[in-house]
Amino acid sequence: MSWVRVCRLEDILPGSGVCALVEGKQVAVFRVGERLFALANFDPFTRANVLSRGLVGSKGERLYVASPLLKHRFDLESGECLDDPSIRLPVYAVKLEAGEVWVGVPVGEKVGT
């Protein structure tokens, strides 16, 4: 795993997301309270890089982001689409260290376009 520092915690308003460029990949990073989540920024239903701009919500205990385009919901923890469980987004490791947000990428993983 290699870690990339992406921003400071205050750069993300609580309850919202930002998009980070991590080794060529677009990663959507969300802050819910003091918890952080990271998943792909690509909405597979509309094929646009927009998930970081979606609203964060909860269904029961599950936290999700709803795509701003057609409102498909994706579990923040697992990447699974709540509306179509056959679809699952890549998720990434993310950590907070001294007020800074880091995203982890497995070493050797192919870099996508």
């Binding site: 792909a40 890549p90 990434y92 490791a93 192919k110």
Partner: peptide, 8 residues
């Protein structure tokens, strides 16, 4: 952009 079903 990314491969499927990844968990680091």
């Amino acid at each position: 952009p990314l491969a499927m079903g990844v968990e680091p």
